[in-house]
């Protein structure tokens, strides 16, 4: 009888440990979209979460990776396809467009003007702020390979890593909040 109870206690202990591990005060977010408005929303949520004392881990994948390119950096030794991708995709956050009402760039320019008037931080400022606040940015290695981006051409960000989907899944599985943007 005692053995039975002990066994049950052990099993419960295991479950409790698992639950505790599963509920870190942490936010995991997949940043997939490459448009100005969507990435800005992601960064506002990310920095806001740090104010709530949450640990924040962003997983940049597909179109979002282009937003992290540094406009002033150039790398050599790319093949033809990578060069083409490099030319066609926006080189950094300043080149991003709105997902709606871009109107050949007019809408985006107008939005930037309104943002300034309303004292909303630009995306460039948000990246700097996020870095200061300890927001982690993990970039999907496969996306980097597909688009031919190299780590050397990315912005200088204090907490940046190149990783795979398992890193995101591991982070997400122990986060209270998970988002996809």
């Amino acid at each position: 009888m005692n053995e039975e109870i002990e066994k049950q206690i052990q099993e419960l202990q295991k479950k409790v440990n698992k639950l505790e591990k599963g509920t870190k005060d942490q936010l995991s977010m997949v940043v997939f979209s490459g448009e100005l408005d969507k990435i800005l929303a992601a960064m506002i949520i990310a920095t806001g979460a740090t104010a709530m004392d949450m640990k924040v881990k962003l997983f940049f994948t597909f179109w979002a990776t282009a937003s992290l390119r540094a406009p002033e950096k150039n790398v050599s030794g790319k093949n033809f396809m990578s060069k083409m991708f490099g030319i066609m995709l926006p080189k950094g956050s300043k080149k991003l467009k709105l997902s709606k009402m871009n109107m050949a760039g007019m809408g985006t320019a107008m939005m930037k003007g309104i943002m300034k008037k309303n004292k909303v931080a630009s995306l460039e400022e948000m990246f700097v702020l996020a870095g200061e606040l300890g927001v982690e940015i993990n970039i999907c290695e496969m996306s980097m390979n597909l688009m031919g981006f190299k780590k050397e051409e990315m912005i200088d960000y204090p907490h940046m890593n190149i990783c795979g989907v398992a890193t995101f899944l591991n982070d997400a599985s122990e986060s209270k909040v998970q988002l996809f943007i």
């Binding site: 806001g48 740090t50 104010a51 004392d53 909303v120 931080a121 606040l133």
Partner: peptide, 13 residues
């Protein structure tokens, strides 16, 4: 007063 969301929250923190 010089910032918009999430500026005031970060300032408070």
């Amino acid at each position: 007063r010089g910032t918009a969301c999430p500026g005031p929250l970060l300032a408070a923190k």
